[in-house]
Amino acid sequence: MQRGTEAPVEEPRTSSRPDRGGAPASAEPTIAVAGLSHSFGTLRVIERLELELEAGELVGLVGPSGCGKSTLLELVAGLREPTAGTLRVGDQNTTSGRLAQCAYMAQRDLLLPWLAAIDNAALAPRNRGASRAEARAEAAPLFDRFGLAGFELARPAELSGGMRQRVAFLRTLLAGKPVLLLDEPFASLDAITRAEMQEWLAGALVTQARSAVLVSHDVEEALYLCDRVLVLSSRPAVVVAELAAPSPRALPRNQVVADPAFVALRERALWALQERRR
């Protein structure tokens, strides 16, 4: 089992939570969303949404399916232009500027079946003009660190679902962007693999000093992985609850999720979700 804590720690975030001692003290939030609204035709998906993300912060977005979580992420990523409101990532507010700031990981792994795992992971360096050998050299250390050693040359079809998802995550990391946007990265996995992958990702994120937004419909996943969790209403999405996650992330998942404080928070989040549905 790849426990994240075994990975070499670049910038430890073990003491998690808001008063993160070592976090770069920048006054400007990394992501600033103000009065954001988006509609598809007459369908209003997001309504005057506010969101700020500090540098290095991990924020979870949970909400009922179809509430516009994914759309919000696509807007932040620069894959869409919002109908109204402002949206800034780093110092960029144009779509192309946001694209340059954000690495986006979709629900499906989207690995290219004709490329070896390592070449899939190294797509971003290749796109930036690196030769295949250079790009592979850049990706190889991450394969070792994230429990994929020996699978560099395997085709995606030869990998398990969890491994494919890890390769997709490495591909996202190798994009080298300051902001990670994760759109239900484990939704397509079975429950056991999913729990393993959550633990793995928690460890992987500890080694990465990056801001991240995780979209999930799984309250437990979001609370376990993130510093702060926003609960969204059903369409059009507004923030109905904001929860600061409790536990130090270095602990094993099954200990964290059984902690009474964690359970209480999870109940609050679920209650907030249900409250808005009525």
């Binding site: 694209l99 986006y104 979709a106 499906r108 290219l112 930036r128 994009a175």
Partner: peptide
């Protein structure tokens, strides 16, 4: 979704 994925990876 594949071209979109590539766009987020700086592809022209």
């Amino acid at each position: 979704e594949l071209p979109r994925m590539m766009r987020t990876l700086d592809a022209t």
